[in-house]
Simulated scan of single mutants.
Amino acid sequence: MSRIFTTAFGAVHPLYVAKAERKGRTRAEVDEIITWLTGFDEATLRAHVEAGTTFEEFFAAADLNPAATLITGSVCGVRVQDVEDPLMRRIRYLDKLVDELAAGRPMEKILRS
């Protein structure tokens, strides 16, 4: 089992926000991506961040967006669509979305609309 599975989502969320903000994007945009992917509303997302929920628990509670399968490409040299472990694939989906946001991609493309 990967160490990221037992890492608190709330410990990584500020890193996602910082990455986006360095590129001129906002916390609200990061949270919009996360809520789109997971089906959580803003209050539920905030509760997970504050509660110390692990990535494993976070994605177990999520209702993954059916359009998430349209997320393709590489994160850290790994093609997200080729990741075998379902939990790791979901984490990579989130990483990829944050990367796209930081790269300046338009929100409607990031959200696969």
Rank of each mutant, 00 (worst) to 15 (best):
F58H: 05
E84C: 04
F9A: 08
R90H: 08
K109M: 13
P14A: 12
F59Q: 00
K109F: 07
K23G: 05
V30E: 04
I91M: 02
A62I: 00
F40V: 06
L15C: 00
R89A: 12
A18F: 14
R90I: 00
D82A: 15
A62F: 06
P106Y: 13
A18G: 12
A68E: 10
V75D: 01
A18C: 12
V17R: 01
F59G: 03
V30L: 14
H48V: 00
M107C: 04
L94D: 00
P86E: 07
P106I: 14
E57P: 02
Y16D: 12
K109Y: 09
P14D: 13
I33R: 04
H48P: 04
I71P: 02
R25A: 13
T69P: 00
A62Y: 02
K109E: 13
E100H: 11
A51D: 13
R112V: 09
A103Y: 03
T53G: 08
L64H: 08
L94T: 09
P14Q: 09
L97Q: 08
V83K: 12
L87T: 03
G39E: 06
R89S: 10
R90V: 00
V75M: 05
R25W: 11
D63C: 05
A61M: 11
E100N: 14
I110R: 07
I91D: 00
T38R: 03
E100L: 15
R27G: 07
T26Q: 06
V30A: 02
L15Q: 14
E21L: 06
R105S: 10
L45C: 05
S2H: 12
A8L: 12
A103G: 01
A60G: 08
A20M: 10
A11Y: 11
A61P: 06
G39V: 10
V12F: 13
L64D: 01
V83Y: 01
T44W: 01
G104C: 09
D31H: 08
R112L: 15
V98N: 07
V17C: 09
M1V: 09
C76V: 12
V49P: 07
M88H: 06
R105T: 11
D85C: 04
D82W: 13
D82Q: 13
I34G: 00
G104Y: 07
F5L: 14
L94S: 00
V98L: 01
G73N: 08
T6H: 13
G10T: 12
S113L: 10
G24V: 09
